[in-house]
């Protein structure tokens, strides 16, 4: 309870502090460069140059410390040993390329990158196309969208229960094994069976991300000009043709955005692997490998190298986003 009071106190202090900072800094600026008197014109111009930075200062500071500074420090650590003290040149990098766990992680990450964005976008597109046509579509959307609100760890519990294995003639309580047995199969320990187990983990993320893809794509589908669809109907196109040949080509841009957004999520996927297999049985991924070296291996050098690899994989998307954003501002 006292903790919540502390949190409440922090909110009040934080909010009050923020407002006080903005208010006082503005006040000081106005007193130092009063917008009246003999130099009014010059003062106003000068104050207008300074004021934006007063507004931006806290944000820029936080961004610099929490997102920019770490990139450089990580590069620095990547050239140092496990404790971050001694310079070791490219040792960590040469360790990386020869490490079998890293190769396994890379292979899995690439698999994830191929499967999850494709499957989520595909299911999202189908869900969007279906739900836009029926009256209870909004309810259906909410249901498919719901996993977005569930934490990755919560989702892991939900899905681990589905993959549960009893064996030894006991009743199977995991849905997958129950279905498998009723179809005549032998119960399986799905999460330890390579290479299928990685796909079992991917299903969890697909389950979460499909709702996101659906929401965005559904909005894009609704934005398609009616005339193009009407013209296709007059030409005798079937509903399937309309969807595949008229609607989808018009939303390629949005599909690309959805795809890249999910790609970024996939590159950072961590909780699901940690909670369900902890990278055992050939399911390791980069983010969990990095976490492993950071906490269990206590090796800042190696952990930093792995983090840099993730950063490197995100960079093309980052550049693409920046270019798009700049194009749009012009």
């Amino acid at each position: 309870m006292e903790q919540l009071l502390m949190a409440g106190g922090t909110i009040v202090i934080g909010v009050f502090g923020c407002v006080a900072y903005f208010f006082l800094s503005n006040l000081i600026l106005d007193t130092l460069l009063p917008p009246r008197g003999a130099d009014a014109g010059r003062n106003i111009a000068r104050a207008a140059q300074i004021r934006p930075w007063l507004f931006l200062m806290p944000a820029v500071l936080l961004l610099a410390v929490y997102l920019v500074y770490p990139v450089f420090v990580s590069v620095w650590y990547s050239f140092h040993d496990s404790s971050g003290q001694t310079y070791v040149g490219f040792d960590n990098y040469s360790w990386l390329v020869s490490d079998s766990k890293f190769r396994e992680s890379m292979r899995n990450n690439i698999l994830w990158l191929l499967v999850v964005p494709a499957a989520s976008t595909f299911f999202g597109l189908i869900a969007a196309a279906l739900t836009d046509r029926i009256r209870w579509g909004n309810f259906a959307k909410a249901m498919i969208f719901m996993p977005m609100a569930i934490s990755f760890v919560g989702a892991s519990v939900i899905w681990k229960f589905i993959y549960d294995y009893r064996g030894d003639g006991q009743t199977e309580i995991g849905m997958l094994n129950a279905i498998w047995v009723s179809l005549g199969g032998q119960p399986q320990t799905w999460l330890t069976l390579e290479p299928g187990n990685s796909f079992m983990l991917m299903i969890v993320l697909i389950w979460i991300q499909t709702g996101f893809a659906m929401v965005i794509l559904s909005a894009a589908l609704r934005g398609i000009p009616e005339e193009t669809v009407e013209a296709a109907i007059l030409d005798g196109a079937s509903p399937l043709q309309i969807f595949a040949r008229i609607k989808v080509p018009q939303i390629w841009g949005t599909i690309a955005v959805v795809w890249t957004t999910i790609t970024i999520t996939v590159l950072k996927v961590f909780d699901i692997v940690l909670a369900m297999t902890n990278g055992q049985w050939g399911t390791q991924v980069l983010a969990n490998l990095m976490f492993d070296w950071m906490f269990r291996g206590n090796d800042t050098g190696r952990a930093s190298v792995v983090a840099l690899v993730i950063m490197l994989m995100v960079t093309p998307i980052m550049i693409w986003n920046i270019r798009n954003a700049r194009k749009e501002m012009r």
Binding site: L63, Y66, L67, V68, Y69, P70, V71, V73, S74, Y77, I264, L267, K268, F270, L286, A287, M290, F291, M294, T300, A303, S304, V306, A307, L308, I310, M311, V314, I317, M318, I319, N321, I322, A325
Partner: peptide, 14 residues
């Protein structure tokens, strides 16, 4: 816009 996608993993150790 660029910082939007910086992976958290980068930031943890530093």
């Amino acid at each position: 816009v660029g910082l939007l996608v910086v992976p958290l993993q980068m930031a943890l150790i530093p």
